[in-house]
């Protein structure tokens, strides 16, 4: 029960919107904040750095924070990751580390020392309780001016209001894959057990995490993302409009009942998707936009450096 938003500058060229990518996405999220007043989150795709990984963890606010950070730092070093950069902001701790080796193993190991939010060469996932404008200031989202990002505002219906249950969700164990979702996956437990039998792990009972892990697992088996999106239309039951992002693309899928809205705007430079047109109009105030509502039971994918329309 929420709103979703995503933006990708196709040529890597930044906008002439007069906004940074972070500001643009935050504007879109703010326009739909009525759909989700509880929490907000961003999956930002930053410049990848050779041989380095970005990690973000949840840590306690206030008193317990330094303890949590110390434990995570220790854990990183114990797992052979040298810290290059770090910051503690809001309820999170972010680090850039030098690391070689299996990311899934590394992240499962790191989850034993702290609440891991995301891992990727490019992905930095920030989410917290609150609303987009307020959190943007706390987390310096406006400084982000990368090629693409997805975001979410949440109205909690079945799980509590905590940073942990905010979206986006990282595909636990898989670098750089994140999803945001509006709707409800009704065959959650069937799909989760199926993935667990294949060794996947889950950190929450949120259905959005399932989508992320599902797609990432498929990709790890050599399936192309576009094929994974397409098969999700058959495999996932319920109502959903979701967005997925990887280090160089954004995709969407929409279920056959189309009960959850999604509108897209595309021109030569950018593709923007959001729950409502009012969000797209925030990027282009005063303009009547040529938008389309993706049809039910369809998916799409847009990648950096590719100019072509991405509906599959």
């Amino acid at each position: 029960m929420c709103s979703i938003a995503g933006i990708l500058f196709k040529n890597g060229k930044r906008s002439n919107l007069g906004l940074t990518t972070g500001e643009a996405l935050t504007e879109m999220m703010d326009a739909c904040r009525h759909r989700g007043p509880d929490s907000a989150g961003w999956a930002l795709y930053k410049e990848p750095r050779e041989g380095k990984l970005r990690l973000r963890f949840f840590v306690s606010r206030g008193a317990g924070q330094s303890e949590d950070v110390a434990r995570i730092r220790e854990g990183l070093m114990a797992n052979g990751a040298a810290i290059v950069e770090e910051e503690a902001v809001g309820c999170t701790y972010g680090a850039v580390v030098e690391h070689e080796g299996d990311i899934q193993k590394f992240s499962y190991a790191m989850e034993r020392v702290g609440k891991l939010v995301s891992v990727g060469s490019s992905l930095d996932l920030i989410k917290d309780v609150g609303q987009p404008y307020g959190l943007q200031k706390v987390y310096g989202i406006a400084q982000f001016n990368g090629s693409h990002a997805i975001g979410h505002t949440r109205l909690a219906t079945e799980t509590g209001v905590h940073p942990e249950t905010a979206h986006p969700f990282w595909a636990t164990g898989f670098a750089d894959v994140a999803t945001v979702h509006n709707g409800q996956i009704t065959n959650y437990w069937i799909m989760r057990r199926r993935l667990e039998r294949r060794g996947m792990e889950f950190r929450t009972e949120n259905d959005t995490e399932l989508i992320a892990v599902y797609l990432a697992y498929k990709m790890s088996q050599g399936v192309l993302l576009e094929d994974a999106l397409r098969s999700s239309l058959d495999d996932l039951d319920g109502t959903f409009s979701y967005l997925v992002a990887t280090k160089d693309s954004i995709g969407y899928a929409k279920d056959k009942l189309a009960a959850k809205p999604m509108v897209k705007y595309e021109d030569e430079d950018l593709i923007a998707l959001a729950s409502e047109e009012v969000a797209l109009n925030r990027l282009f105030p005063g303009r009547a936009l040529d938008t389309t509502e993706p049809a039910p039971l369809t998916c799409g994918l847009w990648s950096l450096g590719k100019k072509t329309e991405g509906a599959l």
Binding site: M1, S3, R35, G36, L155, G183, T239, A259, K260, S275
Partner: peptide, 9 residues
């Protein structure tokens, strides 16, 4: 009204 989000609207 297909969910809590539409209900707000």
């Amino acid at each position: 009204i297909l969910g809590g989000d539409d209900l707000i609207m």
